Computed example of a mutant assay.
Amino acid sequence: MNLNLLIDNITNPALLFFILGILAVKLKSDLAIPDSSSKFISLYLLFAIGFKGGQELAHSDFNFQVSGAIIFGILLSAIVPLYVFFLVKKRLGTENAGAVAAAYGSISAVTFVTAVSYLEILDISFGGHMVATMAFMEAPAIIVGMFLIKQYSVESTTVKTKQVLHHALTNSSVLLILGSLVIGFLASEEHARGIEPFTTDIFKGFLAVFLLDMGIQSGRKLSDFFKTGFSNLYLAIGLPFVNGTLTALISSFFIDSLGDRFLLSILAASASYIAVPAAMRVVAPKSNPGIYLPMALAITFPINISLGFPIYMYILKLVASTS
């Protein structure tokens, strides 16, 4: 693996702030980001990446590469929950298995935003349609997870399909990212330049502060998570590498852009810790968030941004050099 690439990723300020957050918890520091500030920053990140993606999409041709990436992403989001569910159902039970399956089939918008920042550091371009791909990948996994729970649960659930569909399609992250994408697509270049300092110049600073908060939250959940045993730990480490590596290999057959293939790999490797937990409160109230939430946030998220990024990039470049 390219040593310089690994060093660049390890010394990324965003990652270092994430590690600082974990250390703050371990040192029992009172360092904390106010909830209101954390929510604002998360909304800002989704707005900025959506708006910039819309601007990029406005200058992109809708061709096989674009439609192929979007369709492939949606299929991934629907297929991954199926194999994950049956992989863990016997050990975790139906509702917990459905929640874990939905989490790993869905995506992490924060991981995607961090991956975009990583590509910018490497000066690798990507298509604006990847923002739409990310948004479209969030809902299918939640829907599949819901149907699996309803199908295999001993106790029939009274949750209406319409209720879950509405939640999956209108939760704040999906609505904001899609709305910002459309606005960015419709906005003229002159209007876009008017808010560029807000959407571009301060983006990395806000990302660093947000990841500091994510580090604090992850650190708080680690101790409780390890009480559930090491099986979930191995799963939280293995699933992203399996999903990310397979996507990196398969996507090379129909997508030319290195940046697009990298983002698809990251989306496949990531796990949702915002939209899915909120949905599972409705769909599977008996599921244990102490299992799937730390798996996604405290293990898979840091694994992806520390080791996953350089590994998937190495695989993609290796595939490109041998093709």
Rank of each mutant, 00 (worst) to 15 (best):
V80C: 10
V80G: 06
V80H: 10
P81K: 01
P81V: 01
L82Y: 07
L82H: 10
V84I: 15
V84E: 08
V84W: 05
F85S: 02
F86W: 14
L87P: 06
L87E: 09
L87D: 05
V88Q: 12
K89V: 12
K89C: 02
K90S: 12
R91Y: 08
R91N: 13
R91I: 08
L92D: 05
G93Y: 00
G93V: 02
G93F: 00
T94E: 06
T94Y: 01
T94H: 01
E95C: 00
E95R: 07
E95I: 00
N96T: 01
N96W: 00
G98C: 05
G98R: 05
G98T: 04
G98V: 02
G98P: 04
G98A: 14
G98M: 03
G98N: 06
A99N: 13
A99H: 13
A99D: 13
V100K: 03
V100F: 03
V100G: 04
A101V: 08
A102T: 10
A102C: 07
A102N: 08
A103K: 00
A103Y: 00
A103L: 00
A103R: 00
Y104A: 06
Y104P: 10
Y104W: 08
Y104S: 09
G105V: 02
G105Q: 07
S106G: 13
S106D: 12
S106K: 07
S106P: 12
S106T: 10
I107R: 04
S108T: 11
V110Y: 15
T111E: 06
T111L: 01
T111C: 11
F112C: 11
F112M: 09
F112K: 07
F112V: 09
F112T: 11
F112H: 09
T114R: 14
A115D: 12
A115H: 13
V116H: 05
V116R: 05
V116P: 07
V116L: 13
S117D: 14
Y118V: 01
Y118A: 11
Y118E: 10
L119R: 09
L119N: 07
E120W: 03
E120N: 15
I121M: 13
I121D: 15
I121C: 01
L122W: 11
L122N: 14
L122S: 14
D123P: 00
D123W: 00
D123Y: 01
I124Q: 08
S125E: 14
S125D: 15
S125V: 06
F126S: 08
F126E: 02
F126Q: 00
G127F: 01
G127Q: 12
G128N: 08
H129P: 03
H129I: 04
M130N: 12
V131E: 07
V131I: 13
A132H: 03
A132L: 15
A132P: 01
T133Q: 04
M134C: 04
F136Q: 05
F136I: 08
F136D: 05
F136S: 14
